[in-house]
Structure formats: structure tokens, C-alpha cells
Design a protein around this nucleic acid. Structure first.
Length: 497
RNA sequence: GGCGGAGUAGCUCAGCUGGUUAGAGCACCGGAAUCAUAAUCCGGGUGUCGGGAGUUCAAGUCUCUCCUCCGCUACCA
């Protein structure tokens, strides 16, 4: 059996308005999940929502709802978007679910029993108006009033105890934190002594959370709660640990803003609980909306999500996946979107399909012609397709999705060249059989390209494969069945003016 | 301040352990073709590889230094 593939997105904060960042991470996970499923690996793609914490409690109060009612109302904001984006998650976890809270308490107990939790006074800057402790950084912004120093009894997790082990682990597992510059950041961070982590909040201040199993006067700190979703969803119990079917996770995909929690808090929590660490934590970059001067206040920001209504989901997914080098920031503008769409999808890919199907319709009454004996140029295309598939897999394994996509388009471009060189529209007048061979070859190339791009654009590639009646075919050369009647179709990627 | 990353064609970027005339895509100009979504194909780049110095037979690629931009420097979620 193939190695299982377990990929996660962060659980998004239920109070947030979903934006391009949420969409990007989730599509990215979706593409990898679809890719591995197609490869035949047992796949678990998990996303969900983080529903506890001060802000939820406050927002609910403002609306005169219970926190739970408030959360239930917010959930569709996300799930509707996932539907719209054709996200194929296998599970959707909410931290308010019993199956999750149970595990959080089990882990808290486990860590407690390991002797890694102790009581102490927490002293910090407390904002009376905000009713919460604020960070040094927040204090420096000067945006908070009524600040005083406050002491409070709390529980702490001995994170510092695992510092050396964590450093060791990061060094021994180069893929644990990716990309490399993020790993360096964390190693830099770990050069200074780690503080212990305050993991409790007294209910007098905050009661919307998971109760500490060893003191019912407290709930646990949201991060301690949230991170555990990665094991509560696949399943955890005290006797067997995390479900062996899925753990350790293959990738935790995250935004760079939550690297520390994932690369420091989470692994040390797992160490204390005696659980293996995930295989990799991958922090991607952010989408910059064109000129950074563009801002919401000016109101000229184009939300890429709106592009879906105009141009369809698949082109938007394509753009996001093709344009961002995983791990770096990227720019989003309508101009770039259109340019990428037209040159890659309309001109190269979609247009090639039109050329091939039109020629087959005109000259072969719409039936896929016979491949015949392959000549050098056909063998070249065939070999290109074989090496394309190999390179594609290699790049996907290394999280170089944008390059993988680029290779496919390059291959398509080569097929356009091949069409030009062999000119089946001329050839058909002299040697119909030879023309058929060219069209078969180009059709095969389209079929294989569509299969490769299907995790990125599941709908449009299905349309293409259906036209060729090859939806269930595989990447091996020769999947098109001669004599198959082509299905009618409109341009696959109509050009945008 | 400390640590880390980046500065390569108009734009977006490739260039691993130093080695033939520094590359790709897009855009742009010229031509060919006309099966196709006016799409495609061919041809066209004298780029101070951020500045300066150094190591070397040889540096975009290593060292030093300077300039510019960015990220991290935790316990809000």
C-alpha cells in the first residue's frame, strides 16, 4: 500500500472574514490532496475552524448570542467559500466539537502527568478596557488605554525543557521546517532561551474555552487548544496515541504569520505528550495586492475571490498556484491574472484543444484517428510526455508546484510547435493517415497534460477529458482510443479581452 | 540593535557545490502561416548580474565592505 498522505491547513479563526490568504492556503492543500489521491495514496485533507477565545466571546455578547450560536452563524462564511472553490477536504473540524475537546483534555492530562505543567504567577500588561493582557508590541503601538501591571495565578507549560531537543530535531530533519529561510528564522529564535508558555486563562476573565481537566476554574489557552486539532481530527486515544493511519502528518501548511506557534509550541507540546512530530511544517508567503499602496481604505482592491464569478474557479486556482513561488510573497493584480490566463490557458492550452478537435471534426468525422507507426517527431513528443510526468512528480514531492505547472505549459507549447512543423491541415490533403497520426499525438499530449493539471483545475480538465472520452485514463502514452467520437465543446478557456 | 533573506533583461523570475559567447516566460518589433479562442510558428536582448575592493588561471556564483528593500525578535487570535 502507498504511504498515507495527511495534509492540513490551519484552522481559521471563526471570527475572521475569509480572504485571499485563507483561500490560497486551502486551495494549495486541496491541490496536493487531489494529487496524492490520484496517485492512489490514502489521503486525509483536514481543515476547520478555531472557535474559542476572547474575541468570539465578545462578538457573541455584542450580538446578544451565546458563543456557540455565534460560531454556528459564522461557519457558513467559510464552508460556502470552500464549496465555491471546490475544496475537497475529507474532514472539517471545529474546536467546539466534543471529539476535539475530549482530546485537548487528554493531552493536557498527559502533559500534566509528565510533570510539564506548573502553577505560577503570571505578570503582564493588562488592558482594562480590552479585558485582556496585551503584548509588549501592542503596548508600544500606544493604541491601548487603561493599562496596568497585573498578577494572576496561572498554569505554565515547561516549553523550555524541550528547547534543545527541538533544535536537535530541526537540524536533523531538514524538511521539518520549510522553506529554508523560515527554518533559519526559527533556529535564530531558538538561540535565545525559551520561556515557558502560559496555557491557562481564569474563567473569571474568559470562559469560552476548553476547561482544564485538573482545575475547573480555568480554561486553556487558545493555541494549546487549536493546535491539537491536528491530532483530534485523525483520532487520538490514550491507549494507542494518534491514529497510525494518518500520523505523523505529511504537511502542516501555514501562513508565515503563525510559524512560531507551529514550529515551536506545537512540537514541544507533542514531545511532552510523547507523540511523534509531523513530517513537515510549510510556511507560505502572502499575496500582495499589486502596488502595496493599494489599500482597503482607498477601496480599489480587487478581491480575487470575485474573479471567480467572472472567469470561473479553475482559472483563479490556476493563477494562484502558478504565480506564487511556494514560500515567497507574490503579487496579485487583475492585469497579471489576465495576462497569465490568456497566454497559458487560452492561447497555449485551450487553443491547442480547439485546433486538434476542429481538424478531427473536419477530416475524420469527429473520430479520433489511428496513431499508426510513430515517427521521430511523434517519438519525441511521447518521450517528452514521459519525462514530463517524472519531473512533475519530482517537483510536487519538493513542493515546487509552480514549476510543475510551468513544465506542463512548456510541454503544451512544444506540441503547438509540433503542430506547426507537421501542419496536419496541409498534410491531410496528401497523406490522410499521416495527418491522423499527428492529430492523435497532439490529442494524447492534451490528454496527459489535462491529467497532470487536474489537481489544479479539476473542472476544466474534466471537460477536456470528457471531450476525448478519456476521463478514466492514466498517464501512460496511448490512452486515447482510436475511433472514439469526440464530444462537442465550446472554447475551454475563452480569451479575456 | 541582534539574527536571517533579497537586490540578475521593460515586468515576473531561473541560475546547485565558481568554468564555454548570462537564461526562461510575458511584453515589444519584424516575418511566416491560416487548422484554431486574431490564437500559432520563426527571427530579434551591447543586461555596469545593487556599488566598491579582494581571492583565483577563471566569480552573477567565494571573502570583506558599503547602499537599498524585506522578514523574525514569541505567549492577541
Amino acid at each position: 500500500m502507498k504511504k498515507p498522505f495527511f495534509i492540513t491547513t490551519p484552522i481559521y479563526y471563526v471570527n475572521d472574514k475569509p480572504h485571499i490568504g485563507h483561500a490560497y492556503t486551502t486551495i494549495l492543500a486541496d491541490v496536493f490532496a487531489r494529487y496524492y489521491r490520484k496517485k492512489g495514496a490514502p489521503t486525509l485533507f483536514l481543515t476547520g475552524l478555531d472557535e474559542h477565545g476572547q474575541k468570539v466571546q465578545e462578538a457573541a455578547k455584542e450580538k446578544g448570542l451565546s458563543p456557540m450560536e455565534h460560531c454556528n452563524k459564522m461557519v457558513p462564511q467559510f464552508t460556502n467559500l470552500w464549496d465555491k472553490l471546490h475544496i475537497s477536504n475529507d474532514d472539517f473540524i471545529r474546536t467546539t466539537e466534543p471529539r476535539h475537546k475530549k482530546v485537548v483534555q487528554m493531552i493536557l492530562n498527559k502533559v500534566f502527568e509528565s510533570g510539564d505543567i506548573y502553577e505560577a504567577e503570571y505578570e503582564g500588561l493588562y488592558s482594562v478596557s480590552e479585558e485582556r493582557f496585551i503584548t509588549e508590541k501592542e503596548f508600544e503601538t500606544g493604541q491601548f488605554r487603561d493599562i496596568k501591571k497585573l498578577k494572576e495565578k496561572n498554569y505554565f507549560f515547561k516549553m523550555s525543557k524541550y528547547q534543545e531537543r527541538l533544535i536537535q530535531h530541526i537540524k536533523e530533519n531538514p524538511k521539518f521546517i520549510q522553506p529554508n529561510h523560515r527554518k533559519n528564522e526559527i533556529l535564530g529564535f531558538l538561540r535565545k532561551p525559551l520561556n515557558d508558555l502560559c496555557i491557562s486563562r481564569p474563567k473569571s476573565r474568559l470562559n469560552w474555552g476548553v476547561e482544564l481537566p485538573f482545575n475547573s476554574e480555568y480554561v486553556t489557552y487558545v493555541w494549546f487548544d487549536a493546535l491539537i486539532n491536528y491530532i483530534s481530527a485523525p483520532g487520538y486515544d490514550e491507549d494507542h496515541g494518534v491514529s497510525k493511519d494518518w500520523w505523523p502528518a505529511s504537511h502542516h501548511l501555514i501562513g508565515k504569520d503563525i510559524l512560531t506557534t507551529h514550529a515551536v509550541y506545537w512540537p514541544t507540546m507533542l514531545m511532552s505528550a510523547g507523540i511523534d512530530l509531523p513530517e513537515s511544517i510549510f510556511a507560505h508567503g502572502w499575496w500582495l495586492m499589486g502596488d502595496s499602496k493599494m489599500s482597503k481604505s482607498i477601496g480599489n482592491v480587487v478581491d480575487p475571490i470575485n474573479l471567480i464569478d467572472d472567469y470561473g474557479v479553475d482559472p483563479v486556482r490556476y493563477y494562484l498556484m502558478r504565480e506564487m513561488v511556494l514560500g515567497q510573497d507574490a503579487n496579485f493584480t487583475i492585469e497579471l491574472f489576465k495576462s497569465r490566463y490568456n497566454s497559458d490557458l487560452a492561447n497555449d492550452f485551450g487553443n491547442l484543444l480547439s485546433r486538434v478537435t476542429t481538424l478531427i471534426n473536419k477530416n475524420f468525422s469527429g473520430k479520433i484517428p489511428n496513431p499508426g507507426d510513430l515517427d521521430t517527431s511523434e517519438i519525441n513528443i511521447k518521450n517528452d510526455s514521459i519525462s514530463l510526468c517524472l519531473s512533475f512528480d519530482e517537483l510536487m514531492k519538493n513542493m515546487r508546484l509552480n514549476e510543475a505547472i510551468e513544465l506542463v505549459i512548456r510541454f503544451i507549447s512544444g506540441v503547438n510547435k509540433y503542430m506547426e512543423q507537421n501542419a496536419p491541415w496541409k498534410l491531410v490533403k496528401e497523406d490522410k493517415r499521416a495527418a491522423g497520426k499527428v492529430l492523435y499525438t497532439a490529442g494524447e499530449a492534451l490528454r496527459i497534460s489535462a491529467l497532470l493539471l487536474s489537481p489544479v483545475m479539476p473542472n476544466r480538465t474534466k471537460t477536456l477529458l470528457d471531450i476525448l472520452d478519456a476521463f478514466d485514463s492514466n498517464q501512460k502514452w496511448g490512452g486515447l482510443k482510436p475511433g472514439t467520437q469526440l464530444n462537442d465543446h465550446a472554447p475551454l478557456f475563452p480569451r479575456i479581452k
